[in-house]
């Protein structure tokens, strides 16, 4: 049955240039003073780190570049940050929240 499915699961790697599809919105909620991700019939709460990552996900930067950038901001090593970001983005890709 799987053969009939043309669409494939998106796999996020360090080379991926991740971006939001048009219908997913990283939204600053002025009333509640928090960041939210708006998706069809769903709302997600990104934490501070993920907001920092997601703001960089504009489809031009690779995951490796984003990770590198954040090592400075969060004073953590790349081998801690990169796997964490990859996990997070893969999870979001599986939920249909980001493209890669």
């Amino acid at each position: 049955m799987d053969e009939s499915i043309s669409k494939k699961r998106t796999v996020v790697t360090q080379e991926s240039r991740v971006a939001f599809p048009p219908h997913i919105k990283l939204h600053r909620d002025a009333v509640r003073q928090q960041w939210l991700i708006l998706a069809p019939e769903r709302v997600f709460h990104p934490d501070e780190i993920s907001v920092a990552v997601l703001k960089q996900c504009d489809g031009t930067r690779t995951v490796a570049e984003i990770a590198e950038k954040l090592t400075h901001e969060y004073q953590a090593t790349i081998d801690v940050i990169q796997p964490d970001i990859l996990d997070m983005l893969q999870d979001l890709a599986d939920k249909g929240l980001v493209d890669a």
């Binding site: 928090q34 019939e41 769903r42 709302v43 990104p46 780190i49 993920s50 990552v53 979001l92």
Partner: peptide, 29 residues
């Protein structure tokens, strides 16, 4: 877990399995 889903149905969705991952966020929202 960097991104948690709101357990609150946003609309027509009334799933049995919507996660309640972050009660504190929920109350605030």
């Amino acid at each position: 877990k960097h991104v948690s889903e709101s357990g609150m149905p946003v609309g027509a969705r009334e799933t049995d399995d919507a996660p309640v991952e972050n009660q504190a966020n929920e109350e605030e929202a």
